[in-house]
Protein backbone atom coordinates (compact mmCIF):
# COMPACT_ATOMS: atom_id res chain seq x y z
CA UNK A 1 0.00 0.00 0.00
CA UNK A 2 2.82 2.33 0.90
CA UNK A 3 4.66 1.69 -2.33
CA UNK A 4 1.41 2.39 -4.11
CA UNK A 5 1.14 5.84 -2.55
CA UNK A 6 4.72 6.60 -3.46
CA UNK A 7 4.17 5.50 -7.04
CA UNK A 8 1.07 7.59 -7.31
CA UNK A 9 2.77 10.65 -5.93
CA UNK A 10 5.49 10.40 -8.54
CA UNK A 11 2.98 9.94 -11.33
CA UNK A 12 0.53 12.60 -10.20
CA UNK A 13 2.92 15.37 -11.15
CA UNK A 14 3.09 14.22 -14.77
CA UNK A 15 -0.65 13.65 -14.91
CA UNK A 16 -1.48 17.09 -13.54
CA UNK A 17 0.87 18.71 -16.03
CA UNK A 18 -0.69 16.68 -18.82
CA UNK A 19 -4.25 17.58 -17.86
CA UNK A 20 -3.41 21.26 -17.52
CA UNK A 21 -1.70 21.23 -20.91
CA UNK A 22 -5.13 20.61 -22.45
CA UNK A 23 -6.88 23.57 -20.86
CA UNK A 24 -6.79 25.70 -17.70
CA UNK A 25 -8.62 24.09 -14.79
CA UNK A 26 -9.34 24.71 -11.12
CA UNK A 27 -8.48 22.39 -8.24
CA UNK A 28 -11.70 20.42 -7.94
CA UNK A 29 -11.91 20.03 -11.69
CA UNK A 30 -8.37 18.65 -11.83
CA UNK A 31 -9.21 16.16 -9.09
CA UNK A 32 -12.41 14.92 -10.75
CA UNK A 33 -10.83 14.75 -14.20
CA UNK A 34 -7.94 12.73 -12.79
CA UNK A 35 -10.30 10.37 -11.02
CA UNK A 36 -12.55 9.89 -14.03
CA UNK A 37 -9.85 9.30 -16.56
CA UNK A 38 -7.82 7.02 -14.34
CA UNK A 39 -10.95 5.08 -13.41
CA UNK A 40 -10.53 6.17 -9.78
CA UNK A 41 -6.96 4.94 -9.40
CA UNK A 42 -5.90 8.53 -8.85
CA UNK A 43 -8.98 9.62 -6.92
CA UNK A 44 -7.26 9.21 -3.56
CA UNK A 45 -4.75 11.86 -4.47
CA UNK A 46 -6.97 14.79 -3.48
CA UNK A 47 -5.08 15.54 -0.30
CA UNK A 48 -1.84 15.63 -2.18
CA UNK A 49 -3.29 17.65 -5.03
CA UNK A 50 -2.96 21.08 -3.43
CA UNK A 51 0.53 20.61 -2.04
CA UNK A 52 1.43 19.35 -5.50
CA UNK A 53 -0.15 22.35 -7.22
CA UNK A 54 1.62 24.75 -4.87
CA UNK A 55 4.99 23.17 -5.36
CA UNK A 56 4.56 23.10 -9.15
CA UNK A 57 3.61 26.75 -8.97
CA UNK A 58 6.65 27.57 -6.90
CA UNK A 59 8.87 25.79 -9.41
CA UNK A 60 7.29 27.91 -12.13
CA UNK A 61 5.80 24.98 -14.06
CA UNK A 62 2.21 26.14 -13.65
CA UNK A 63 0.64 29.47 -12.79
CA UNK A 64 -2.70 30.84 -11.75
CA UNK A 65 -4.07 32.33 -14.96
CA UNK A 66 -7.45 33.58 -13.83
CA UNK A 67 -9.76 33.84 -10.90
CA UNK A 68 -13.41 33.34 -11.67
CA UNK A 69 -16.57 33.34 -9.69
CA UNK A 70 -18.93 30.51 -10.36
CA UNK A 71 -22.24 31.96 -11.43
CA UNK A 72 -24.38 29.51 -9.53
CA UNK A 73 -22.59 29.18 -6.25
CA UNK A 74 -20.63 32.45 -6.17
CA UNK A 75 -17.51 30.56 -5.17
CA UNK A 76 -14.11 31.77 -6.26
CA UNK A 77 -12.18 29.45 -8.47
CA UNK A 78 -8.48 29.69 -9.24
CA UNK A 79 -7.65 28.38 -12.67
CA UNK A 80 -4.20 26.95 -13.23
CA UNK A 81 -2.42 26.71 -16.52
CA UNK A 82 0.88 25.39 -17.78
CA UNK A 83 3.79 27.77 -18.26
CA UNK A 84 6.35 27.35 -21.02
CA UNK A 85 8.71 25.83 -18.48
CA UNK A 86 5.89 23.48 -17.53
CA UNK A 87 5.45 22.40 -21.12
CA UNK A 88 9.14 21.57 -21.35
CA UNK A 89 8.99 19.69 -18.09
CA UNK A 90 5.97 17.72 -19.28
CA UNK A 91 7.89 16.74 -22.42
CA UNK A 92 10.76 15.47 -20.29
CA UNK A 93 8.36 13.65 -17.98
CA UNK A 94 6.70 11.89 -20.90
CA UNK A 95 10.08 10.82 -22.29
CA UNK A 96 11.07 9.51 -18.86
CA UNK A 97 7.76 7.70 -18.58
CA UNK A 98 8.09 5.91 -21.87
CA UNK A 99 11.63 4.88 -20.92
CA UNK A 100 10.36 3.51 -17.62
CA UNK A 101 7.51 1.62 -19.25
CA UNK A 102 9.88 0.16 -21.78
CA UNK A 103 12.46 -0.80 -19.16
CA UNK A 104 9.93 -2.24 -16.74
CA UNK A 105 8.18 -4.26 -19.45
CA UNK A 106 11.43 -5.65 -20.73
CA UNK A 107 12.59 -6.76 -17.30
CA UNK A 108 9.23 -7.98 -16.03
CA UNK A 109 8.46 -9.87 -19.25
CA UNK A 110 11.74 -11.74 -18.97
CA UNK A 111 11.17 -12.66 -15.34
CA UNK A 112 7.61 -13.73 -16.04
CA UNK A 113 8.87 -15.87 -18.88
CA UNK A 114 11.32 -17.54 -16.52
CA UNK A 115 8.64 -18.73 -14.16
Amino acid sequence: MKSRTQYRKGCARTLVLKILSERPMYGYEIATTLAQRSENIFSLGQGTLYPLLYSLEKKGLICVCKEMKDKNSGRKRLYYKLTRKGEQSLGEDLATWSDIVKGMTLVLRVSYAKC
Binding site: S43, L44, Q46, G47, T48, Y50, P51, L52, L53, Y54, S55, K58
Partner: peptide, 18 residues
Amino acid sequence: KEFGHPEELGKMIARARG
Protein backbone atom coordinates in the same frame (compact mmCIF):
# COMPACT_ATOMS: atom_id res chain seq x y z
CA LYS B 1 -10.32 9.84 4.09
CA GLU B 2 -9.44 11.47 0.81
CA PHE B 3 -7.61 14.50 2.10
CA GLY B 4 -5.93 12.71 4.96
CA HIS B 5 -5.09 14.07 8.38
CA PRO B 6 -5.22 17.87 8.57
CA GLU B 7 -1.81 17.87 10.29
CA GLU B 8 -0.23 15.95 7.44
CA LEU B 9 -1.84 18.07 4.77
CA GLY B 10 -0.87 21.25 6.59
CA LYS B 11 2.73 20.12 6.72
CA MET B 12 2.72 19.21 3.05
CA ILE B 13 1.29 22.59 2.09
CA ALA B 14 3.85 24.31 4.28
CA ARG B 15 6.63 22.45 2.51
CA ALA B 16 5.18 23.09 -0.94
CA ARG B 17 4.78 26.80 -0.43
CA GLY B 18 8.10 27.02 1.36
